[in-house]
């Protein structure tokens, strides 16, 4: 016979499905919610529901949004001749936080990973090529991750975009701030030396 009240057991089970949350953490969160004011619990429930009901993909850049098109794509002040291509929606906020980029984005929703059976068909590549057809775009910035999958994706996109006469650039690679030269890997150091700048 179950000794835990059913609503508690249900919430523990639901929370423990989230990444990084085991059964103990789920239990702790559940009892915390049980102790908190009912308004807080309601607000959390409403936020979760709103997330699923209102969030969709922007039909232009395929970033997650609650309006159509997204705030970035509808912003006339932004430079629509530059498209920054990223792997996931979560890659956009860090680039925005730099305050250095005023163009628009395109979210691929993944990277090419042959061993996992993810090819270009599974990504928003065709949609990107469609965006490039109107002649407005003069530069595509490839901001896929600097790993094997990200490089494969970037090289593949370069192969498709360069013949269109559009400038293709790649985010610079080099030593991270707070890093240590002694422990830097060969590929990073090689890039850092090749792409060094006047100081």
């Amino acid at each position: 016979m179950a000794t835990t009240a059913e609503p508690v057991a249900k919430l523990v089970e639901a929370l423990s499905k989230l990444p990084g949350i085991g059964p103990k953490s789920a239990q702790r969160l559940t009892y915390c919610l049980l102790r908190s004011p009912v308004e807080e619990a309601k607000a959390l429930a409403e936020a979760i529901l709103a997330l699923r009901e209102k969030i969709r993909l922007c039909p232009i850049c395929f970033n997650i949004t609650d309006c159509d098109p997204c705030l970035i794509c509808r912003d006339k002040e932004r430079d629509h001749s530059k498209i920054c291509v990223v792997e996931r929606p979560s890659d956009v906020p860090p680039l925005e936080q730099t305050g250095k980029y005023n163009g628009v984005y395109h979210v691929l929703h993944g990277a090419i990973s042959p061993a996992q059976g993810v090819g270009a068909e599974e990504l928003k590549v065709k949609e990107l090529l469609l965006r490039l057809q109107d002649g407005v775009v003069s530069e595509v910035i490839l901001a896929t991750n600097p790993n094997v999958e990200g490089e494969a994706t970037a090289m593949y996109l370069r192969q498709l975009i360069q013949p269109l006469g559009i400038r293709v650039s790649r985010l610079a690679r080099g030593l991270p701030f707070g890093g240590d030269l002694e422990y830097a890997d060969e590929m990073t150091l090689r890039q850092a030396i090749e792409d060094r700048r006047e100081f």
Partner: peptide, 27 residues
């Protein structure tokens, strides 16, 4: 410590695809 990062494979789409196939076969 890196002995060889195979930069030629990582900067050529076709060679990289071939190398990833080799790795998948071993795996």
């Amino acid at each position: 410590q890196t002995i060889d990062a195979f930069p030629v494979l990582k900067s050529d789409l076709w060679r990289m695809a071939c190398a990833l196939y080799v790795l998948e076969l071993v795996d």
